[in-house]
Design a protein around this nucleic acid. Structure first.
Lengths: 346, 346
DNA sequence: AATTAGCACTCACTCTCTTAGAGTGCTAAA
DNA sequence: TTTAGCACTCTAAGAGAGTGAGTGCTAATT
């Protein structure tokens, strides 16, 4: 392996990404950065093929990168495009538009923008509610025997659910129960609000509170919703516009998209690229997924990913992804000044 | 036009729906209900073609129905399959599963089941919240300067939204404002809770309440959410499994699915069938949509629809659709006994 | 007048065969 | 070590030919 071969590999990857056609030795030799003849290129290509970095659809066709070829290119060869200042400003505006309000909206905006810019599908896995704190729990009468339980977290997530009781509650009962919930639930983290914890709580309830068990059950379900990472997808349609992706596989993927959760949950740092071929949970042929973590005050709290064809302009897409995940990290980390205030208020 | 031609048309439609291949005269003549020779069938087919009910992909191919052919078949010829008793029971169970809780869940369950059973996409447009009454409005502190406004309707819909104020409210201010909202908003219908009404309300607020305008604004937005028909789709993937639908058109449709709202909103009674070809807002080639209204106490409050290939087993699908929309009508009409109770409670 | 048998005709589809061209691999010369 | 030259390979595109399902028309039959 030498300098020139790497240069040729990079040239093949870039040309193939650009045109989608297998690349011949003549095309490469004609490039300004290549100063050798087509015959030499051919020799080097044959050698790159032996190393498993390039492949042939058939004898008399040009070369295209293998998965290994892409991987080497991404890790060592590519020169990431840097975003021009004006582009950054445009993106920042996009995110600010109405996203500053809550984390959830911010992340949604970023995912939408990412899908839009890359013309790929974008996915985000957000487990940040887990790390926030229940800042408020409310029980609100909502009709005969119907009560709404409401959880608000320090991160700004709001969840509600209607529950039906066997009896109507008197105002005193309601006040007492609210008091009980506030004392036992407010201020603890979503993570801690587990099924066992709730079971303990139910056990601790005095006898006459037992009829309120459905409310506790409701809270339990809300907390489960908050704890589980929810995946959000944007721009799935873009996968259908992709010639090289099999439509049926895309459909299958969309139907089973929740299985991605595992992949996104893995802990790693920086950027990770996964190819459709060599993974169990992400099985569109000729596809690739690029994932980056975002952090909240230094802790990984979610992943942002781009899903597209393997033949993707990585040098352009990866910087976008890095920018967005950095931006999300920054914004959700500062925003959370409110945390303590949320509880101070009461 | 005579009896026999109609019989032949029906036979062609059914056979074509069954096989997906153009149907030849011999196939038709061999059917038990047809007692004439292939030559006679050919003559009649030619005549049906002249009337614009059948068509030819090319000279030496069999016939297939035109849009007009389908329409005539649906309106006059088809014999709707009746649901066997056990099937009804199964469906009722499906709906009851957890759907009795709220209207919203009930409708969601029905839509999911419909998509599942027909292997098509199902869509529901629900404008019923418009006709229900605000049974409860709450303002809940949720962090420094953050407040959550919450609307509960008699139909069981719950909406919330976080708002940011310029100042924190004291407990008295909060109580007073809640009182103010309850007096002015609870008990009126969602329909009445218009932008003007809210503007009047803001005008009526005493000076020191003016800083709470963002909360009123929030309520205004919640009410707008409730008023506008929200479309819900289920089983969109099924459209991709459909050979005869163009994948790109399906993608385009899904991206612009909200444009269906207009079509679903039209008032009509009974069942309506719309074909992709002859409509501006619903443009998948070779597709059709069957829509039925559902009612609440006699008023149309929403539409339930099935979207699938034009080559669809209408005789099977239409009864399903009718059954579901009737069932929804029945359930949401009776369920509403709670209406008055919801307010009586307070 | 309506129906049917018979037959020529049409046209998509499938095969096979051919050709053109892009690209390779190898060899021998520079 | 690099390059020019050349034979070789394999696909993609196109042309013909054969097949068969199905039609449309005509003349005979009921």
């Amino acid at each position: 392996m030498n300098e020139r071969k790497l240069k040729i590999l990079a040239a093949v990857v870039e040309e193939y990404v650009r045109t989608g056609e297998p690349v011949g030795s003549k095309t490469i030799a004609a490039m300004p950065q290549i100063h050798v003849s087509a015959a030499t290129v051919r020799n080097d290509m044959a050698s790159l093929e032996q190393m498993g970095l390039l492949e042939h659809p058939h004898t008399s066709a040009g070369r295209m990168p293998t998965i290994g070829g892409y991987r080497l290119y991404i890790e060592k060869l590519m020169q990431p495009a840097s975003l021009p200042e004006e582009e950054r400003e445009r993106l920042d505006e996009m995110l600010a538009e109405q996203g500053a309000m809550t984390e959830e909206l911010l992340i949604e905006n970023a995912t939408t923008a990412l899908a839009e810019l890359t013309q790929c599908a974008a996915v985000v896995s957000d487990i940040s509610p887990r790390f926030s704190v229940i800042s408020r729990v409310e029980v609100i009468p909502a009709g005969r025997r119907m009560y709404v339980v409401l959880l608000i977290t320090s991160g700004g997530a709001i969840k509600n659910k209607a529950c039906r009781l066997e009896f109507d509650l008197t105002d005193e009962q309601l006040a007492l129960f609210s008091q009980f919930l506030a004392e036992n639930i407010e201020g603890i983290s979503v993570e801690e609000l587990s099924e066992e914890r709730m079971a303990q709580l139910t056990a601790a309830m005095s006898a006459y509170m037992l009829s309120m068990a459905p409310l506790v059950q409701g809270i339990c379900e809300l907390s489960r919703d908050l704890r589980q990472r929810a995946l959000m997808f944007r721009g799935e349609q873009n996968l259908f516009s992709c010639e090289e992706l099999d439509k049926m596989e895309v459909v299958h993927f969309i139907e089973h998209k929740d299985e991605l959760a595992g992949l996104l949950d893995d802990s790693f740092s920086g950027i990770r690229v996964v190819f459709g071929e060599d993974n169990d949970h992400f099985v569109i042929g000729n596809s690739s997924m690029i994932v980056s973590k975002y952090r909240k005050k230094g802790h990984n709290v979610g992943s942002l990913g781009v899903i597209g064809p393997m033949r993707l302009d990585y040098a352009k897409v990866i910087p976008y992804l890095e920018y967005f995940s950095q931006k999300i990290s920054d914004l959700i980390s500062e925003e959370n000044d409110d945390d303590s205030g949320a509880r101070r208020r009461r």
